[in-house]
Structure formats: structure tokens, C-alpha cells
Computed example of a mutant assay.
Amino acid sequence: MKANRVIIIGIDGAGNFIKDAETPRIHALLERGAYSYEAQTVFPSISAECWGSLLYGVGPDKHGINNDKASRETVPSNFPYSSLFGLSRAQWPEAPLAAFSCWEPINTGIIEANLDVHCVSKTDPELAKDIVAYIRSTPEFKLMFIQFDLPDAAGHAHGFGTPGQIKQIEQTDPYIGMIEDALREEGLLEDTLVILVSDHGGGGTHPNDHGSDHPMDMTITWGAAGYGVQAGAIDGPVSIMDTAVVAARALGLPERSDWEGRLPKGV
């Protein structure tokens, strides 16, 4: 038994500050699944390193992707690791796969090129509308990755975990509602696994920055809800690298022996 599709919703820079925000749709999604506000990201706690670890299931010391490389280079053809998109394309040569990322280097420098992934890079509000349109027009998709960026920008502008950033996290909440509503209205919600995760927090060593191993930078929100997941808070360690394992297990993809993630207890 497996899910028919997986959606990974990434909220950049939101750390575990989500727990302090008035986000009814995010909290409802997490609470109908397995979740933790004490999950851990990788060091250095920087976007490309973190999103790369989520998609490839290994740490930055292995995948070697960073912000500079992702902004300038594509993943080389001889790359020794395979992302969730690479595994999905090998499993389903013709299936629709999609990535909607406000921060364009995810689409161009973290996800492998030449996989025929439908990639869109726009601002968060426009991105949300395009995601809904894609769900309605292409219900047969197997894997979708989403990255909303404005909470990270607000953290850099106002300070991570401050009211200014919390407000932006709250303004992101309706986008999650739009996605869930579209899935429900198209009859797709019941056999979809939705994973919601932040890539890093911030404010640990500098109020307006991240990248350190301070708990404020390293502690993130992680949750999986939907097909095959029982509800409840996860009582145990969770890593951002576990995302690859959970998504692969849900889709029936072959799990790689080099993955450093695992299936969190309770998921």
C-alpha cells in the first residue's frame, strides 16, 4: 500500500517559530498527522545546504550543495547522489513531477537538470495560485516540492522569531489552506501524503541571520499528514534528512543505502 502522490511544503526560515504563530491551517494539518516542533536541520543551517539535505537524504558534507553553487551551477551529470526527483523519474519515466520555489536556485541548482520537472519560480502569493492551478490541471502528478520564501526574508529584515517574522508566517498560512482545499476539491486529499517542514530557524548568534549550530538556528518544524500516517506528536528525534525516507516509503520508491535519514518513530 502506498500514497498516490507526495507534496512537500517548505516554509523557509520558519524554524519552530510556527508553534508561536496564529496559523490555523498549518496547525490543523500538523495535528491530523505526526509532527514535531523539535526536529533538527543540518549544519550549516543555510537554505541550500538544508533543502539539499531534505531532497538527497544526506548531509552537506556529502552532497556539497551550498547557496553559491546552487545560484551558479546545475547538479553535475556524475553527481553521486539521487534526489527524490531523480528516484521518482527513474520509477515513473512519464509521470508529472513539479517544483514550485520562490528561491529559484532550488529549481535550477539543487534539483537535477534534465528530469523534465515542471519548475516554477515566482513570489509566494503568485506561487500559491500556480500550485492550485497545477493541482487542478495535472492531478496525476506523483511528487511536488514547494518552497515559500517570505518568512525567511522577514526574519532577515525584522529578526527571527520576532513579531515581524511571526506576522509573515501567519500570512503564509492561507497558502497552505489553498493547497489543501484544492486537493480536497479534486478528490486527491485522501491518497496524498503532505509533508510540511521548515529548512532552518535563525536568531541564534545574530538576531537577523542563521547558519550556526545554535538551537534557534537548528530547530525546525516537521510534520507528515495524510495517507498512512497516524495522528500525534512525535516523541523522539526527527531530522530534515528523514524527509527523503518518509516520502520514498510513501511512494514505494527504492530507498538508497547512502541515506542518513531514517523513518521517525511514530510516523
Rank of each mutant, 00 (worst) to 15 (best):
N107V: 06
F79H: 08
S77N: 10
P264T: 05
I11M: 14
K142S: 01
F160N: 12
P151L: 03
L54F: 09
K265V: 12
A90E: 15
Y175P: 13
L253Q: 08
H214P: 02
T138E: 14
A95H: 13
T221I: 06
G201W: 06
A244I: 07
L55S: 07
K122E: 13
S137H: 10
D181A: 10
A99F: 04
L189Q: 14
E126M: 13
G33R: 09
G232R: 10
P237T: 09
S53H: 11
D173P: 09
L150I: 00
L127M: 14
S36V: 09
S121L: 00
K167E: 13
R184P: 00
W259I: 04
S71F: 08
F148A: 09
A247L: 02
A182V: 07
E140R: 08
F100I: 09
L30P: 11
G211C: 02
H158I: 00
P264Q: 07
I234W: 00
K167S: 12
A39R: 01
G201D: 09
A250Q: 12
S83R: 01
G187N: 05
S53E: 13
L183E: 07
P237N: 11
L263K: 12
G232D: 07
L263H: 12
A99K: 01
A70K: 04
G252E: 02
G86L: 07
